[in-house]
């Protein structure tokens, strides 16, 4: 992604949901995108697949996949590209599946669209269910006959259908109970080891992200404020917002201390705060934070942060 910009056009003016976002995903890598609701993380996912609908508008930037700019593809190319190269798993499997059609048909649909024969699609469906750990008999079930966890597994099976090199997961486990969530995350980790695809994993749950990702980007108000390898980010968070987020998750072990969270609430993106967008909530804000927007700068070869505290 290079300098991606997306705006939602509203009667009150454009909402700059994604404002100059750049990051890269290497083959086999899990990149985590963390942020609160409204920070633009899902918008990025939708922009990559070009499934944004008006009033959303991609206003600038590039989304390069293996050197080709997705944002410049025509409809035909896009149709062949989607799902075979990048697939997506949405948050709510309940809404992602069609309630009046059998899981088997929904699985085959994707494969038939991309030129597999009916027999091939049938075989592949059984293979896929095996892969995600559901008994193949369940292929003939309707979505409502499956539990939440199984539905999410079925959605992952559909995403895997064409063996795409990149899978986008937009809060895939948020609607699930913790035990089922853990189970699915382990399944995803195992599948990735076996098949070697990359993942763009989007969630608001930082502790989950640290567990599953290689690299993490933290978003605030449409911009990436910090980017680093997962361990590094967890052990040495630099941006005050990241620190605040870390301070928002109580732990189940260790000494109990008071957590402050972050005061205030996320900004209105029609008129975002001037300068650094986090300055009104930042405990370390300095006078020039409200005037000059900080640019991302490297504080180590792998760790970038957009904050004036690190200005030389």
């Amino acid at each position: 992604m290079r300098d991606l910009r997306v705006a939602y056009l509203t009667t009150r003016g454009p909402v700059k949901a994604v404002d100059g976002v750049s990051f890269g995903i290497r083959p086999g890598e899990v990149v985590g995108l963390a942020g609160e609701s409204g920070s633009g993380k899902s918008t990025i996912a939708h922009a990559i697949l070009r499934i944004l609908h008006p009033p959303a508008l991609i206003t600038g930037g590039q989304a390069l996949f293996e050197g080709r700019d997705i944002l410049e593809m025509d409809d035909d190319e896009l149709n062949r590209f989607r799902w075979s190269k990048i697939s997506i798993v949405f948050q709510s499997a309940m809404n992602a599946l069609n309630p009046v059609s059998k899981i088997r048909d929904q699985l085959s649909d994707v494969m038939l669209m991309h030129g597999l024969s009916k027999t091939e699609a049938r075989q592949r469906a059984v293979e896929l269910f095996d892969l995600v750990g559901i008994e193949p008999q369940r292929l003939d079930a309707y979505p409502h006959q499956l539990s939440g966890g199984m539905r999410q597994r079925a959605v992952i099976a559909i995403a895997l259908a064409l063996n795409p090199p990149l899978m986008i997961m937009d809060e895939p486990t948020t609607a699930l109970d913790v035990v089922v969530q853990k189970d699915i995350l382990q399944q995803i980790a195992t599948l990735r080891e076996k098949l070697g695809f990359s993942i763009l994993f989007i969630t608001h749950d930082l502790s989950l992200l640290v567990e599953i990702s290689d690299k993490i980007a933290i978003m605030y108000a449409g911009q990436i404020v910090e980017q680093a390898p997962a361990r590094e980010l967890f052990d040495h968070p630099a941006h005050p917002y990241t620190l605040g987020l870390m301070n928002s998750f109580p732990s189940i072990t260790g000494p109990k201390h008071k957590l402050a969270g972050i005061p205030g609430s996320p900004p209105d993106l029609i008129a975002p705060p001037s300068g650094c967008r986090f300055h009104p909530r930042c405990p370390k804000a300095m006078p020039h934070c409200s005037q000059i927007a900080p640019l991302p700068q490297a504080i180590s070869p792998t760790h970038a942060v957009a904050c004036h505290l690190f200005d030389q």
Partner: peptide, 12 residues
């Protein structure tokens, strides 16, 4: 055991 634990990492 199911609570995400950044200290431990995801054990497959």
């Amino acid at each position: 055991a199911a609570v995400p634990n950044p200290h431990a990492g995801l054990k497959t």
